[in-house]
Design a protein around this nucleic acid. Sequence first.
DNA 1: CCGTACTGCAACTCTCGGGTTGCAGTAGCT
DNA 2: AGCTACTGCAACCCGAGAGTTGCAGTACGG
Lengths: 134, 134
Amino acid sequence: MTTLTLVPVFAALGDETRWGILTALGAGDASASALAGRLPVTRQAIAKHLAVLQEVGLVEPVRVGREMQYRVIGSRLSATAQRLDALGVEWDRRLAGIKQIAEELQETGIASEQAGDFYLQKPAFQCQSAAETD
Amino acid sequence: MTTLTLVPVFAALGDETRWGILTALGAGDASASALAGRLPVTRQAIAKHLAVLQEVGLVEPVRVGREMQYRVIGSRLSATAQRLDALGVEWDRRLAGIKQIAEELQETGIASEQAGDFYLQKPAFQCQSAAETD
DNA sequence: CCGTACTGCAACTCTCGGGTTGCAGTAGCT
DNA sequence: AGCTACTGCAACCCGAGAGTTGCAGTACGG
């Protein structure tokens, strides 16, 4: 199971140029040189971006003759989306639970911060740990 | 319809400290000062991050007395996940189609780059345009 | 009513990363 | 074989942003 950490993936997706590369790559595999012809940046810049994208597993290098083409790994996007969705649901669920608990505690006169600490201890998801097993 | 652009959201999610804030906020609404007590950064730094998170709609300010608490909007996470998942599927589907077309074109002797250009023209999704209607 | 505590703005530092140019190496194609 | 073109590495520039300190404003609470 290649549990890539979420944050670097999002950091990689948080760049317009990188989206441009991914979009252009959506038209089929291409090399850094080929992409440089379609995007307003240098080949080297694209090469760096491709390295970043490869680092987080969003893209995959494929040797074709003397060219080094890159292929988008769509499943990685989907997998990331899955985890993100789970987090969103989890958050909503948890906050709904807290709101209810807070109301109950207000009746008994206990500070609501106690409830907060209870829920704070180690969230169900781990986003920054999890070693890369690539 | 608040069609926030995807890229800034990902950029916001591409920071460890911001995830720390979101995680801490998962324990219930809190102010920048309160968060500063649980995270290893200054209150001002947290305030900046909260501004960023609010900018992309991941967080929502709530006045409580003289405090300014913030609440996570889990649905925004889920919505982003939806679009991300759609993109991942779209990419896989498109690349599968291209592969098939490329094979067909090889039989008729037409260069595969033509097919690439065809698919390149304006992708079905728009990630960098779309004005913010907030 | 005064002190406390929380907010907000401003200026500054410093690192990171996106982008560039340049060059050396190497693998194809004719 | 030799030319061509694509790759990879290294050095450099520069702007954005993460973080800090400092200060002024303001609204509760006793």
